Computed example of a mutant assay.
Amino acid sequence: MAETGARWLVVMGVSGCGKSSLGAALAREFGLPLIEGDDFHAPESIRKMRAGVALTDADRAGWLSRLGQELAAHDKGAVLTCSALKRDYRDRLRAARPGLRFVFMALSREEAQRRVAERAAVHMFPASLVANQFATLESPVGEPGVLEVDATAPLERLAAQVRDWA
Rank of each mutant, 00 (worst) to 15 (best):
T56E: 05
L34W: 13
S65Y: 02
A127G: 02
G62S: 12
D88N: 11
G142M: 09
P33D: 13
L129W: 03
E118F: 03
G77I: 04
V79Q: 02
F40C: 07
G37P: 00
E143D: 14
A42I: 10
A117P: 08
V79R: 02
P144A: 12
E44Q: 14
E138K: 09
G99C: 10
V146K: 10
P140W: 00
F102H: 05
R28H: 14
E36G: 10
R47H: 09
R109T: 00
A25W: 01
T136K: 05
A120I: 03
L71I: 12
Q133N: 14
R94W: 04
F40K: 04
A112L: 06
I35A: 01
D38S: 10
A96D: 05
T136C: 12
V146L: 12
K48W: 03
S139E: 10
C82R: 02
L32T: 05
C82N: 00
V149M: 09
A78L: 09
P126A: 08
L26Y: 02
T136G: 04
R119H: 09
T136V: 13
E118C: 10
E29D: 12
M105R: 06
D75V: 14
E44S: 15
T81S: 14
R90A: 03
L26N: 03
D59E: 09
E44T: 14
C82D: 00
R87T: 14
D59A: 13
G68C: 09
R115T: 05
P140A: 10
D39F: 10
E143P: 01
Q69F: 01
E44C: 08
M105Y: 05
V122P: 01
L55F: 08
N132F: 06
S128Y: 01
F125R: 05
R101D: 09
P43R: 06
A131D: 15
A121S: 15
R60G: 01
S108C: 08
P144I: 06
R47Y: 02
L93W: 08
S108Q: 11
E138L: 12
L64F: 01
Y89E: 00
D38H: 04
E110T: 15
Y89F: 14
M49K: 06
S128K: 11
G37D: 04
A73F: 08
R50G: 13
A106C: 12
N132L: 05
A96S: 15
R94C: 07
R90H: 11
L100K: 06
M124E: 04
T81M: 05
K76R: 15
S65V: 11
R97A: 11
A127E: 09
H74S: 10
R114D: 04
E36D: 11
R115V: 09
A121I: 02
G52A: 06
D88Q: 13
G37A: 12
R90E: 03
G77P: 06
L34T: 06
E138I: 12
R109P: 07
D38N: 11
